[in-house]
Computed example of a mutant assay.
Amino acid sequence: MALLNFRKKQETFGSSAQVEAFLDGYSIEVMPRTAEKVEDFRALLPAGTRVYIAHIDGTPIEDMVATAARLAADGYNVMPHFPARIIKDKTMLADWIARYQGEANVRQALLLAGGVSQPHGDFHSSMQLMETGLFDKAGFTRLHVAGHPEGNRDIDTDGTDRNVMDALRWKQKFNETTGAEMALATQFAFEAKPIIAWANALKDAGITIPIHIGIAGPAKLQTLIKFAIACGVGPSLKVLQKRAMDVTKLLLPYEPTDIINELAAYKAAHPDFNIERVHFFPLGGIKTNAQWAIDHGGATAAPADQS
């Protein structure tokens, strides 16, 4: 019986080699104001790491481009956000693309609706940004779009996932015509089983765009709950709420060890599983998240100045 239980645990929780393989090529997200606090990214992140730059409403494009230029100069693959609802028109979009390319040689972008409720201009969805053709014209090699394992309350206001699936089918068709590689960069969640079910359901529905799964990095529990509620995390929020009720764990920082282990084990057992990469949201700080990845990711997670 003990041997049977051990084997079941192995099937559920990945070995260190499986975790290292799963974390290989992970990406991470920064903002200009958080990037300013990092003296040297090369002491934290592997060479060539994809670094997303989140564009929060009100952040000057000059700050975004400067951050992109710094990261590119350090040898990282830079992927700035293009939030549709804060881009006024096609002229502004073309200007942003030109700035990023001219000053930071950017060739990758995450296209999303954005966190504001009312559009500032002509665009309200990532699909409209893609329809301009400006990214293909500029020779972008990668275009990532948002994925929502637990639904998206901004799109599916009727409580179903119908609108989300319609948008994903549209993006699947675009994926078949664009010259850029595409991926779904997802919102973070805290349970592996619903993520696995969601990813498999997409595949069954003919959505074959690779998934870069969003994972919340190590953080204080209170911080994580605050961000999870603000970002619209769904049913898996109960994992944090249950932890918060346990006084023995309340003051301990959350780490994504369990969810990473489970996803890594599933990926190892199902090589055709559509989750391709891990994307970290460093809610407890970039340095803390990078160190966790170094501790769990093996040689491929070694910082650039040590590899």
Rank of each mutant, 00 (worst) to 15 (best):
V38S: 01
I195F: 12
F174I: 04
A199D: 10
K193Y: 13
F41I: 00
G121Q: 12
R33Q: 11
T132C: 08
A84E: 07
Y266Q: 09
G115M: 05
T178N: 15
V51S: 02
A72G: 06
K88S: 12
I211R: 02
H270V: 14
P80Q: 11
T157R: 13
Q18G: 08
I28R: 01
G114L: 03
T141E: 15
I86T: 13
I97G: 04
A216E: 03
K37A: 06
G102C: 10
L283R: 00
A293G: 03
R70W: 09
T208P: 11
H144S: 14
Q10L: 09
F280M: 11
A264F: 08
L23A: 04
R277G: 00
A301K: 06
L112C: 06
P210S: 10
A269R: 15
W170L: 14
N163F: 07
L23M: 11
E191L: 15
A268W: 12
W292G: 02
S15D: 08
A69V: 03
Y76P: 00
H279Y: 11
P119E: 09
T132V: 06
R169L: 07
L71Y: 00
A301V: 05
Y76W: 04
T248Y: 02
W170E: 15
K88L: 04
M64D: 09
L111N: 12
L168W: 07
G115R: 02
L252M: 05
Y52N: 03
I195A: 10
I259L: 09
I56K: 02
E276T: 13
I155W: 07
D95R: 14
F41N: 00
L202N: 10
I86W: 05
G114H: 08
K8M: 11
M245E: 14
A17T: 12
N261E: 09
G14S: 13
G151T: 07
I209M: 10
K171S: 10
P83L: 03
G214F: 07
H212W: 13
A84H: 09
T49L: 01
P149W: 05
G234W: 05
R142V: 04
C231P: 00
A201C: 04
F188R: 01
T91E: 09
R7V: 07
G133W: 08
D305L: 00
A201R: 15
L240F: 06
T208D: 15
V65Q: 09
